[in-house]
């Protein structure tokens, strides 16, 4: 085999596959979003955006992402630095902390449902402690704040692990000498974290944040399990446009809006955490 052609032969399957199952459907979504019947139109976007549920579901999705992602980032950084200085039991602790990585959002929703539902463990605990006489229905329209908290907790519980894995891997690539050098020059542990770990961790932070933010906009099953229709989010609206309302064009338009938001945030993160050329480890 010609060595010059070989790499192209090797990437051909992926390229073809992505062309058929990624680029092509993407083009279809775009086309569907911009047409009604056979006509080019922005009407789908107008319809979707003017629907009364749109501002709420947009606000909910953004609020959830804004509440969840920073907490996850802080938590993942804390866990990663804790694991980094651990000698005994590191593997076990890491395994426990990465367990949620394998748990689907649906299962996570169900797990937290066991805690927050009316006959659930939170109520059992509170009545056991004599805080309430009657089990409280947390996940109802009377407790919108509780619904939000439950969903946010489930998301934090489930999806911190992926950030943790990326950050632990990233920290593992930073040579110990840098810390020793910083220590010799008089940096405190906190300064070492700020001045050495964080800047050198930028590529990993980038990946972790992009992945998490994009996934946060796709939040769906956790919400479905815990809030149902009480807490409309964008992905849930797409689902109901497609199935309950049988309006594929509107679903496509909304999908493009989600994509647009994801791309904007990806670019912002890429820009904010860019690594100057030559400043890599």
């Amino acid at each position: 085999m010609n060595a010059r052609l070989l790499p192209y032969v090797l990437i051909l399957p992926v390229t073809l596959f992505l062309a058929v199952f990624f680029l092509y459907p993407f083009a279809l979504v775009a086309k569907q979003a911009f047409t009604q019947g056979a006509e080019f139109t922005f009407a789908n976007f107008r319809d979707v955006a003017s629907h009364w549920k749109f501002p709420i579901s947009l606000k909910n999705t953004m609020l959830l992402a804004a509440a969840v992602v920073p907490v996850q980032l802080a938590l993942a950084l804390l866990m990663a630095t804790m694991v980094n200085r651990m000698k005994k039991g590191r593997d076990l602790v890491l395994y426990v902390w990465t367990i949620p990585l394998g748990i689907s959002d649906l299962a996570a929703g169900i797990i937290w449902l066991a805690i927050f539902e009316q006959s659930g463990f939170l109520n059992s605990m509170m009545s056991g402690l004599g805080l309430v006489d009657q089990p409280v229905n947390f996940l109802s329209y009377q407790n919108p704040m509780m619904v939000f908290v439950a969903i946010a907790l489930a998301e934090i519980w489930r999806a911190t692990a992926i950030m943790l894995v990326i950050l632990v891997a990233g920290i593992g690539l930073i040579p110990k000498e840098y810390y020793e050098a910083a220590e010799v020059f008089g940096a405190s542990p906190w300064q070492r974290f700020l001045r050495v770990t964080l800047p050198l961790l930028r590529p990993s932070l980038q990946t972790a944040l992009i992945l998490r933010v994009v996934l946060a906009f796709e939040v769906f099953a956790v919400v479905a399990a815990l809030g149902g229709t009480l807490f409309p989010v964008l992905m849930g609206e797409i689902y109901s446009y497609q199935f309950d309302l049988q309006n594929g064009n509107a679903a496509a338009a909304l999908a493009l809006i989600v994509l647009g938001i994801s791309i904007v945030f990806t670019l912002v993160i890429l820009r904010a955490l860019r690594v100057p050329k030559g400043a890599t480890i």
Binding site: F21, Q32, S262
Partner: peptide
């Protein structure tokens, strides 16, 4: 291209693929 797919809400593509 690979990274782009990672930054894309992929399940959304299920909609047009359903038709296909």
């Amino acid at each position: 291209l690979i990274l782009l797919t990672r930054a894309f809400p992929l399940p959304l593509l299920a909609l047009p693929l359903a038709v296909l």
